[in-house]
């Protein structure tokens, strides 16, 4: 603003109108942005230890299927999701927990004990007992969960 020109009444009111309008605009704009981007600012849900069941149910040397349900919260809706995990142990102390989802296209694999293989019916894929690809199109071994045993109960980290 020009120093030599004195701010007249008209100029002052014009300036005040813009200033107040700007404050009101920011008063709407800033909360609006916070409101709109809220879902992206939310922290990713932390993974939790999911209880599978008793460790004694796992047969030595045979992948054993555990099924459990977890709750997933999206917006205001709570959904139940089924989690299926194959647990393998050779000595009863060290456990390997594998997802039953085929790494090819996401079908469910199942353990065929006669043939010693995880079989995926979609494209005839086979996985070895430890999850390695034995045959067919899968690009990588079965995904593994972090697993722990506490008081005879098995837990995997997921969610």
């Amino acid at each position: 603003m020009n120093d030599k020109k004195k701010l007249d009444r008209r100029g002052f009111l014009g300036f005040a109108t813009w200033a107040i309008g700007g404050i009101i605009g920011a008063g709407f704009g800033i909360p609006a942005i916070a409101y709109i981007i809220a879902p992206a600012m939310r922290k990713e849900e932390e993974q939790e230890w999911i209880r599978l069941g008793s460790a004694s149910k796992v047969e030595l040397g045979t992948p054993t299927l555990f099924k459990t349900k977890i709750e997933k919260q999206t917006g205001w809706i709570t959904n139940e999701e089924e989690v299926s995990v194959y647990v393998l142990t050779e000595n009863g102390r060290d456990f390997v927990a594998m997802s039953n989802i085929c790494t090819h296209l996401g079908c469910r694999v199942r353990w065929i004990s006669d043939q010693d293989v995880f079989f995926c019916p979609c494209h005839n894929a086979g996985f070895a007992k430890n999850g390695d690809v034995a045959s067919g199109p899968p690009p990588r071994p079965l995904d593994q969960y972090q697993v722990k045993e506490e008081d005879g109960q098995l837990f995997v980290l997921g969610g």
Partner: peptide
């Protein structure tokens, strides 16, 4: 099914939702 819950979600879970 969702009207009441979504309004509660806006009011209590979304930042500035109570204000809007």
């Amino acid at each position: 099914d969702h009207a009441y819950d979504s309004v509660q979600y806006i009011t209590t879970q979304i930042p500035m939702g109570w204000l809007i």
